[in-house]
Amino acid sequence: MENLTLNETPLGSQSQTPQPNAVLPGAPPQGPPQLPPQMFTTAAQLLDLTDKKLLLVLRDGRKIFGILRSWDQFANLVLTDTRERYFVTTPSSSDDAQPQPRNLYCDIPRGTYLVRGENVLILGEVDLDRDDEAPPGYEEGDVEEVFRIQRAQEMERKRKDKGKLRKVAELWGGEMEGSGEVLF
């Protein structure tokens, strides 16, 4: 692997000549080309997203909508007017022989949120033209119904996880280290 400085080019590559100064034709050429803004992977990228509506998916699976108001060098975020969105799938209550599953969602207002940067899994800007539309394949449900179904599904998932941990402990002999609740 080569050790290069900003003014050197890798071996075998074509030498880039400095670009002439387009603003002042008689001025000396400007320095090496700058990196495009897409190359920065720091919290500074959040500058363009300030005061815009964002969707955050957190490591524990929560989905948060809100307006980004402030952030710091660790990508800790302050969001206002936040809503937490829940998605559930449940059989419909129709009397058909085979009930069709219903995909429901609901939004629960949460106010101002402070999110630690390391907990953000995905962050994206919300298209305000489509913000009022239901997500494709989902219909808006009653908050209490969606929340109740979501909690029941979460309890069922935890029960299954405990059963799996119990089986693993039997196979490997003893309790697993750090076998507490699994966080995603």
Score class of each variant (00 low, 15 high):
76 N>E: 06
154 E>G: 01
167 K>W: 02
129 D>Q: 14
95 D>L: 14
104 L>N: 11
105 Y>W: 15
149 I>Q: 00
174 G>Q: 05
116 R>W: 07
151 R>P: 00
85 R>T: 07
179 S>E: 01
76 N>G: 08
25 P>S: 09
132 D>V: 07
54 L>V: 13
139 E>C: 03
89 T>I: 08
52 K>Q: 04
138 Y>S: 11
131 D>P: 01
130 R>T: 13
120 V>P: 07
12 G>A: 12
157 R>S: 01
184 F>Q: 05
1 M>H: 00
53 K>A: 02
54 L>H: 05
163 G>P: 01
22 A>S: 11
52 K>I: 12
81 D>Y: 07
19 Q>E: 06
97 A>F: 12
157 R>E: 04
10 P>A: 15
109 P>F: 12
158 K>F: 02
158 K>Q: 01
91 P>S: 03
36 P>C: 07
8 E>L: 13
38 Q>E: 13
141 G>V: 06
58 L>T: 08
71 W>M: 09
22 A>V: 14
120 V>L: 06
81 D>R: 03
169 A>V: 03
21 N>V: 11
52 K>G: 05
135 P>C: 10
78 V>E: 10
26 G>H: 11
183 L>F: 02
8 E>N: 10
78 V>S: 00
82 T>D: 11
42 T>L: 10
93 S>M: 05
44 A>D: 10
79 L>C: 01
78 V>Y: 10
179 S>W: 00
10 P>V: 12
69 R>W: 01
126 V>R: 10
13 S>M: 15
17 T>M: 09
66 G>T: 00
147 F>A: 11
121 L>F: 07
80 T>Y: 00
66 G>N: 06
24 L>M: 09
32 P>S: 15
8 E>C: 07
178 G>Q: 04
142 D>Y: 03
65 F>E: 11
106 C>Y: 12
81 D>V: 02
152 A>N: 06
116 R>M: 12
26 G>A: 11
158 K>N: 08
115 V>W: 08
94 S>G: 04
46 L>G: 09
74 F>K: 07
99 P>E: 02
173 G>L: 07
47 L>K: 15
108 I>P: 11
26 G>K: 13
48 D>L: 02
108 I>C: 05
66 G>V: 07
142 D>A: 13
118 E>A: 03
24 L>W: 10
149 I>F: 02
108 I>E: 14
117 G>W: 04
102 R>G: 03
173 G>Q: 01
147 F>D: 13
78 V>W: 02
113 Y>D: 14
163 G>Q: 09
122 I>E: 12
94 S>W: 03
35 L>F: 05
165 L>P: 00
98 Q>G: 02
130 R>C: 11
23 V>Q: 06
54 L>M: 04
77 L>K: 05
174 G>F: 05
166 R>H: 05
59 R>V: 00
92 S>G: 15
15 S>R: 13
89 T>S: 15
81 D>F: 04
80 T>V: 04
26 G>T: 13
159 R>A: 00
33 P>N: 13
51 D>F: 08
2 E>F: 15
173 G>W: 05
107 D>A: 03
140 E>I: 04
48 D>H: 04
138 Y>L: 08
164 K>Q: 04
154 E>W: 01
75 A>W: 08
182 V>Y: 02
161 D>M: 01
169 A>P: 01
163 G>F: 00
115 V>A: 14
34 Q>A: 11
126 V>N: 09
72 D>M: 05
45 Q>S: 10
83 R>W: 10
103 N>K: 15
96 D>G: 06
109 P>S: 09
